[in-house]
Simulated scan of single mutants.
Amino acid sequence: MTRVGVPSEIKTDEYRVALTPAGVRELVDAGHEVLVQAGAGLGSSLSDEAYTAQGARILPDAAAVFAEAEMIVKVKEPQPGEVAMLEPHHLLFTYLHLAADVELTHGLAASGATCIAYETVEDSRGRLPLLAPMSEVAGKLAAQAGAFILEKPFGGRGILIGGVPGVPAARVLVIGGGVVGMNAAFIAIGMEATVTVFDRNIDRLRELDIAFGGRADTVFASTLAIEEALPEADLVIGAVLVKGAKAPHVITRAQLGLMKPSAVLVDVSVDQGGCFETTHPTTHTHPTYDVDGITHYCVANMPGAVPITSTYALTNATLPYVLDLADHGAVAAVQRSPGLRAGVNVAHGQVTYEPVASVAGVPYVPVEEALGLTSTV
């Protein structure tokens, strides 16, 4: 039996929770104990009674959850007070995005806990199954938010994204054609914007061209191609992902001068450091800021704005992995699963994900060495 703890999320404007009552039921039926902090699900319209009805035990605060649980399941990266409660016997399973947060990397290493990041867990085809559902949500929200922020009272140019007869639609650039970019483009297309998607993978551009059915342009993402498109752009959505690493800058501060006054930048890559040079994290309460006359929307937990959708989508994706870790323990589960092995970012005081170690300036230790695994799976 594993005691699985679900604390309340405390990041600003975060309303998601790591497990639904359905997830609790699956764990309890498998013989595990689930400890849920009082009120943890309220932001997602899930009452304590909904959890206890499926076998969870409600604890009064995060300290009680961390003290009793062996495995901590969260949504967002632990905040400083949560890092302080981690101990070497803990297994932490959550989004970490450590490439953008050196201080957190050092804090998790100092805790001695084993920390598995949702965003670097892989499936058998090298895809990111636990990042995908939130990328879908964030991509769709990026287009919605961009359309909203384009309105004059919110800092935008004062343009309707879909236009009207006789007046052109907004020009939307989506930089990055992965899950975020594809979903952003689909929503922008649905709102009748004029959409161009940039990516450096020709095969991916072919796939997108088929998926869009000719309703959007696809362009190879050279620096010159992006630069030439910026003067006509009303909205630019940054959707660049380098697996587990810091996002590269695809628009520099100098290039902002090419854009129309009050054009809008939405950076979905902000969790990985941002793909615009002028990006810094914002919140849902204060989502935008201005740099050189360009409005930036860089909310670091975009899916938190739609917690009911996001919480259920996340639990659907994470639950099989949560069950595997609870059933077998971290070492055995990681030994069995190449995908989970790729998710281990920190273990026993060592950084076990190479891009994170490089950014943090600490030695990279292979997960096999840190956890005492055999080298094959």
Rank of each mutant, 00 (worst) to 15 (best):
P88M: 14
D292V: 06
D13Y: 11
L27Y: 09
R16P: 00
I10M: 08
H249A: 10
I210M: 14
V334S: 00
V65I: 15
G81N: 14
Y312D: 02
G361T: 10
Y297H: 06
P129N: 01
D101E: 09
V172T: 04
S222C: 04
L86H: 11
S135E: 00
G181E: 01
A22W: 14
T283C: 12
A117E: 02
R127A: 14
G146D: 08
V377Q: 12
P320F: 15
E49C: 06
A229E: 07
V268A: 11
K74Y: 09
G238P: 01
T279M: 05
A305H: 08
I202R: 06
L108Y: 09
Y118P: 00
Q350S: 14
H280S: 06
V359S: 04
Q54G: 00
G176M: 05
A40G: 09
R204H: 05
P363H: 11
H286I: 13
A109Q: 06
G181Q: 02
A357C: 08
V377L: 13
R200G: 03
G176K: 04
D217I: 00
E49F: 02
A109R: 13
A330P: 07
I161W: 06
Y312K: 13
L241C: 04
S222F: 09
V73Y: 11
D327T: 10
A193Y: 08
L235M: 05
L173T: 01
L208M: 05
N316V: 11
L128T: 03
L92V: 12
A40W: 13
R200K: 14
L325H: 04
L19N: 06
V172P: 01
G23H: 10
T376E: 15
G23C: 14
D48P: 06
G372Q: 03
F186K: 14
L27W: 09
A330H: 10
R200C: 08
G39V: 13
